[in-house]
Nucleic acid binder design. Structure first.
Lengths: 347, 347
DNA sequence: TACCATTACGCAATCGTTTTCGAAAGCGTT
DNA sequence: AACGCTTTCGAAAACGATTGCGTAATGGTA
């Protein structure tokens, strides 16, 4: 922004008024200007290396051509593809994305939301919503379009793009059931995240649908979707839970942690205990036992979210689907196999 | 930005002039305003939910409190920690980061550089520089502070924060040598990336230092740092290269691809061929054979880059180190072991 | 009381664009 | 030739914040 060439410079160069330059450079210049002037201005602008100042134009028009993305942690392999998915539709249109990591911390989320507001983002893709989130409601009320990706809010009215979590759990549980498993436990994700809660509920529903009895302690809850939490949860299941032959985990990383714990106890996966994941993060097919999991489509989630957001941003009145759910698929690998004769138990 | 409350609103509410409000909210209000006014204004601002409009202030001051990060691909596990490292220093100060993925495509890089310029970013952290990059020179010339992370430019004068690639290669080659390897090949990264070039040169230097003879075809070049490229390169080495007992790869993903190819050919790693990586991306310790690699510190690279950038942004005259190199360390795992009696060869 | 220095605040220009409004010119019609 | 319509462009007012400058008010001093 040091020696930036402005409209005024181009105007002086071409001998027309700055408003004329502005129009000439705009998309529908042909409605209002003569062909000759348009080319003259555009040539000069190109030659002089003019690049528009989005600060100024944003100030005037209330459109910054910038969107915000709130995600829990870019370090989590689920999110980079989502980011690319968003980018794939927004970047060709000239949008820039400000990416912030909330770490699922409410205070951080507030600060970061302000950082986005200050910059007047045209919209927000929120992949880190807690299920109850007054701050987001406030942002929406303020008029900024928001769509949630990979998560959905408890409060309605704001579009969500999610994977078919319930169906994924359903697929996996039935798969286990068909392999003879009857004592199946669940390592659930954080309850304040919709994915954690929905997957847990889906597990209960699917179990009920199969007529499976879920004894007390069959579900271990965690506060994070990471390996350490999975490790602890598995420990809890083995030491304090009912006997079981399989663990259906709410995420791949939880599953990795669980398998790690089992191994440390000399319990073999899948020979003694089957373990499944969710998400299908990269490189899982290289890690033994190759994890049987549910594949979601993070890139697609991002792409569709962006398209929806775009739609709302360009036409706020446009009705748009409250919830878009994307299909998931079962990825059969090695970590889930036929049920052994006797379950692992506390003894 | 719909119903945003502005300085004017706060001014009307408190009965003072908007310039007074501006000053009252600024950092050194106490130099110029009475305590009473300051608190009255600040209270009102807080109560009314005032949030400053960075577009307006940026327009006026030429500081947007926004930085740009150019990376090749956020999907590559090396970069997310780097992003977090940058964030760790910039975010607490109120900066936002616009992240763009260049995919190492020159055309994309140009467009994305413009996207950043349009928004008047205060500085750019560039982790995707090609070694020769006129566009970046132009940006620097225009007055925007730039520091390169993980890469360095052929042209000098712009600060770079890099890992000690040469030393990492040196460590690894010596480690292999001490395990008895004499026929060692190298899968190199893209030559237009500094990390690719530097690591290849370091390999040659270190080999020379050890008195190792490098026959023709001992170095396979690739055009990308990914598994597919590693796969192809390994194929090339096996089919057309000299006999060898070890492959020193310029990145973990190249190594993964190479091992995959070897396995497909029934060649065991590490029993028949040792393979090493570089970077130490996450989860490598879960994938057999557990990859012996060189650990770099991407978070630190990001952190230091951001600190440097900050320094230049706040005081453009400040001299700052042309090149900061961060230490690396050897991570010994399973994929490199003592040399077998006879090397793998074309026959 | 008059005067000067200081304090505390208001005034207004400015950053680069967009956009409404109006004016001038061109053209056809009667 | 007078009139009205369209086309093509300039003038100027915003958008919201910052800041140099001016000026009341204040306090202290002679």
């Amino acid at each position: 922004m040091r020696n930036a060439v402005t409209l005024k410079d181009v105007a002086r160069e071409t001998g027309v008024h700055v408003s004329t330059v502005s129009r000439a450079l705009g998309p529908n210049a042909h409605n209002t200007l003569t062909e000759q002037v348009i080319t003259r201005v555009r040539d000069a602008a190109a030659r002089m290396g003019y690049v528009p100042n989005r600060l100024a134009s944003g100030l005037r028009t209330n459109r910054t051509m910038t969107v915000g993305m709130m995600i829990p942690d870019i370090t989590n392999p689920v999110f980079p593809p989502m980011v690319r998915g968003v980018e794939s539709v927004l970047e060709p249109l000239g949008y820039a994305s400000i990416i912030v990591n909330t770490d699922n911390l409410v205070e951080r989320e507030h600060r970061l939301a302000d950082i986005l507001r200050e910059r007047g983002v045209d919209g927000i893709i929120h992949a880190a919503v807690l299920r109850h989130d007054p701050r987001i409601d406030a942002i929406v009320a303020q008029g900024t379009p928001v769509v949630t990706a990979n998560c959905s809010l408890a409060s309605p009215d704001i579009p969500a793009v999610v994977s078919d979590d319930a169906h994924g759990i359903h697929l996996m549980l039935h798969y286990m059931y068909n392999l003879g498993h009857r004592a199946i436990t669940h390592i659930a994700g954080p309850e304040e995240l919709s994915s954690g809660q929905i997957r847990r509920k889906a597990f209960i529903d699917a179990a009920e649908g199969l007529g499976l009895h879920l004894p007390d302690g069959a579900i271990a809850r965690t506060d994070r979707f990471d390996e350490a939490a999975g490790h602890r949860a598995a420990q809890h299941l083995v030491q304090a839970g009912p006997p079981f032959t399989a663990i259906l985990c709410a995420s791949d990383r939880l599953a990795l942690g669980a398998i790690d714990y089992l191994r440390s106890r000399g319990i073999d996966c899948p020979a003694q205990v089957s373990v499944s994941g969710f998400n299908d993060i990269p490189m899982l097919d290289l890690i033994p036992p190759r994890l049987t999991t549910v594949r979601i489509q993070p890139f697609e989630v991002g792409r569709v979210s962006a398209q929806l957001l775009l739609q709302i941003m360009t036409d706020k009145t446009a009705a748009c689907p409250r919830e878009t759910v994307l299909p998931v698929s079962l990825v059969v690998r090695d970590s889930v196999t036929v049920a052994p004769d006797r379950p692992v138990s506390t003894a």
